[in-house]
């Protein structure tokens, strides 16, 4: 997914002179082809996230569409005010790409765990938040992102994530997708929690339960209409996210259910609002926080 995202920036930039790439201090060789072939629109500006966001705002105010990339915690926490003031207040087409969203950087500890990125960005007016589930969806989204009005935060997963979305399905920012029709129980996902939900669905089908799966790649603005519609059909709703449950997908869905006076059961699966005290791998932490297909089955059955 990460590779596809960066490749697409290069492909899009070749065709569209408004597109520029801005990085801080990324891994050696990142987008080297872009740098070699389009050097006047490639900027690696150093470990200076605050500046990188302001510079990108300045470029956007002059007709460019900057795609900005660095590690998710740095592009959200370090320069939060620059995102609010320089990008969102001016409502500019800056695309902020956070590498390693969620628990990807498990071995690197709490400074690198982007568990609060979505919650943070959700508080900012004018911001759009997108977390696609795989490379196929990423490619479609990137093409759609070019002419989208206003700023976008794009959460990247680990890379090499299993492909679970259909190549034929059209992607539209702001839309959710009912991936499995199901009955009674609805699992709502974003980013790679779609993979987790789909595995859980297979396990549940074996037990005679066929849950609906609603994939919500755009967390803000959320597809309110669809959530209201499905809340009238499903008796139980569970949101699954690789992030803190205070402020993320579950909160966004919960706000809508509260407004519509939902009478069914509603559960948020995610990370508690506390710093991680473990390392290991992304999967180790997903198990630790009980965000696995097995855990989802357990919640649904219980």
């Amino acid at each position: 997914m990460r590779k596809t995202c960066l490749e697409e920036i290069y492909n899009l930039a070749k065709k569209d002179k408004r597109i520029v790439f801005v990085g801080s201090d990324l891994g050696a060789g990142v987008l080297s082809q872009f740098k070699d072939e389009i050097p006047d629109r490639f900027f690696m500006e150093g470990i200076s996230e605050q500046h990188v966001i302001g510079l990108s705002a300045g470029l956007a105010m002059n007709g460019f569409i900057p795609y900005v990339n660095t590690i998710a915690t740095f592009i959200t926490r370090r320069c939060f005010e620059q995102i609010v003031v320089d990008v969102a207040l001016h409502n500019l087409p800056v695309r902020l790409i956070g590498s390693g969203g969620g628990l990807v950087y498990a071995p690197l500890g709490p400074t690198h765990l982007a568990i609060d990125d979505i919650a943070l960005i959700r508080t900012i007016p004018n911001m759009t938040i997108v977390a696609v589930s795989d490379a196929v969806e990423m490619k479609k989204f990137m093409q759609e992102s070019v002419d989208y009005n206003g700023p976008i935060y794009i959460r990247l997963a680990k890379g090499g994530d299993p492909i679970v979305t259909s190549a034929n399905r059209v992607f539209k920012i702001g839309k959710s997708y009912l991936v499995n029709k199901g009955k009674d129980i609805l699992l709502i996902t974003t980013g790679i929690s779609l993979q987790i939900a789909l595995k859980a669905k297979e396990m549940l089908i074996e037990k005679g339960i066929n849950p609906g799966v609603l994939h919500v790649p755009t967390i803000k603005p959320i597809d309110k209409q669809a959530i209201i519609k499905y809340s009238k059909i499903f008796k139980s709703i569970t949101t699954i996210e690789e992030g803190i449950i205070s402020g993320g997908l579950g909160t966004a869905v919960g706000e809508i259910l509260q407004e519509t006076d939902y009478k069914g059961t509603f559960r948020k699966v995610g990370i508690p609002n506390k710093f991680s005290d473990k390392y290991g791998s992304q999967n180790d932490l997903l198990k630790y926080y009980k965000i696995t297909p097995e855990d989802i089955c357990h919640y649904v059955i219980s």
């Binding site: 605050q50 510079l55 300045g58 320089d86």
Partner: peptide, 25 residues
């Protein structure tokens, strides 16, 4: 007014973006 300012330490980065945009164009 070319940029909303008020929180200090923002305007210069935006200005760098403006100047860079002129260089590209």
């Amino acid at each position: 007014v070319e940029a909303s300012t008020g929180s200090l330490g923002h305007g210069l980065s935006i200005a760098v973006g403006f100047a860079l945009a002129q260089k590209i164009k």
